[in-house]
Amino acid sequence: MSLRLENVSYTYEAGTPMEVTALFPLSLEVRCGEVLAIIGATGSGKSTLIQLMNGLNKPTAGKVFYNDEDIFGEKYDRRRLRGQVGLVFQYPEYQLFEETVLKDVCFGPKNQGLSEEEGIARARKAMRTVGLGEEYENRSPFDLSGGEKRRAAIAGVLAMEPRILVLDEPTAGLDPEGRGELLSELMSLRREKEMGIVMVSHSMEDVASLADRIVVLSHGRMIMQGTPREIFDEEEKLNEAGLALPSVCRILQRLKEKGLPVETGALSVEEAKKNILTLFNSSQSSSVTGIS
């Protein structure tokens, strides 16, 4: 299963004097079971790009294929597609509106034409997936904490049982605990359900440690695509695009600038630790370094 964007571009108010091209032609494939991160400065086209992924917006040029079918082809059932490619907007908790969490999470499946019973069954399953137990079912969504609201909103999309989940800055505004929990839930969806996860993020640390592939947008153009290791090897290019290195990469870079022969390619605290210990071990005997 896959989602394929072929030479898609998007122009707002095309054909008018207000015309603005938000996305220049680009091609991209999202596979099930992988985490694809989209990074870029504010206004680089990230949100425009993900709104093309489930047919919410139609590309000005180019085509989008889901399982090799053109989603803007005649007779294509885009409503069904929206259940297959689930889109979670920025700050989705602002879109909670029902009286209880369970009713809110049921909204998607019911809209897809499922029976009340099946809708509830799916909603319950989706709530458990994001760590909301039975005690949450009858609570008002407005009484939940920020992290819980966010998870309830994501459950609403998961209840449609998508194959690909697209999230626009899912951890923005969450405290470290809420952020950690949400990210590990997303990773288990990928692992256990082979779901494809597309994630727009401003957190280079999250992207470095979780993504299989990264797409970098700048002024509406895809300027890089590759593994985290490849992408975070390009500090200058990233800075130009309004981005930065993850914290641990920056620490290693600073060491290198200070003349220490350290290996800089690290994406997590664990990798950075290994590189630094290697540096201290390799240059001298261990008794001198103070490493026991």
């Binding site: 870029g40 400065a41 504010t42 923005a172 505004g173 401003h202 800075n239 309004g242 981005l243 930065a244």
Partner: peptide, 8 residues
């Protein structure tokens, strides 16, 4: 919270 790394 809503800014990219350079904006931050």
């Amino acid at each position: 919270a809503m800014l990219d790394p350079v904006g931050r």
